[in-house]
């Protein structure tokens, strides 16, 4: 099991790096999907089954497909994808590395806290998450529907062809 953790972690990190460095947008999306599937594996490893399923459905099933659709819709390919200058790219890598180092340094100052509840492997099950969700977090859950509606309205608004300004 420990091996499984490191294996999944390696897949995630490598595919994440490829997302960043690969030039083709389609490839980016594919690598991101690989990364997310590995993450779903991590969720299963944490015995968070509900999350694992939702993650696969929402991220890989919906969001990434949306990305793919947009890329195809806009007909993006390698040739028209702009690249930053070499200096800027090196700077970006250095900054990312620094960020990593600083965050690692920050974790060194953490300390172990004793868990509030006795250990149980059951909490990630659908029944338990569902109870918490519809019991303690009912109001935020309902409000999130409002968020979705507004996001949908916003997306439609943006997607409409703008007649006031524009090139046509």
């Amino acid at each position: 099991m420990v091996f499984l953790f490191y294996f999944l972690s390696a897949i995630m990190v490598i595919s994440a790096l490829l997302v960043v460095f690969s030039k083709s947008p389609i490839n980016n999306v594919i690598y991101l999907i690989i990364c997310f599937i590995a993450m779903a594996g991590h969720y299963i490893l944490l015995n968070a089954q509900f999350l694992a399923v939702v993650h696969i459905i929402v991220y890989t099933g919906a969001i990434m497909v949306l990305f793919l659709f947009v890329i195809m819709l806009l007909n993006l390919n390698k040739a028209i994808i702009p690249q930053k200058s070499a200096a800027a790219r090196i700077l970006a890598v250095v900054t990312g590395g620094l960020f990593f180092l600083v965050l690692i340094a920050a974790t060194r100052q953490t300390f172990v806290i004793t868990p509030r509840y006795a250990f149980t492997s059951e909490i990630g099950l659908v029944a338990n998450v569902g109870k918490t969700l519809f019991h303690e977090f009912l109001l935020p859950f309902e409000i999130s529907s409002v968020l979705f509606i507004s996001a949908m309205v916003g997306a439609v608004m943006f997607g409409k062809r703008d007649h006031s300004v524009g090139d046509d």
Partner: peptide, 27 residues
């Protein structure tokens, strides 16, 4: 690790927000 389901509910909410964000962002 803490055997507290609230954290996973948070993740669920983050996914909701992310989905909304992607929809608007892509448009």
């Amino acid at each position: 690790y803490h055997s507290d389901p609230s954290g996973q509910v948070f993740v669920f909410f983050i996914m909701i927000v992310a989905a909304a964000e992607v929809a608007v962002g892509l448009s």
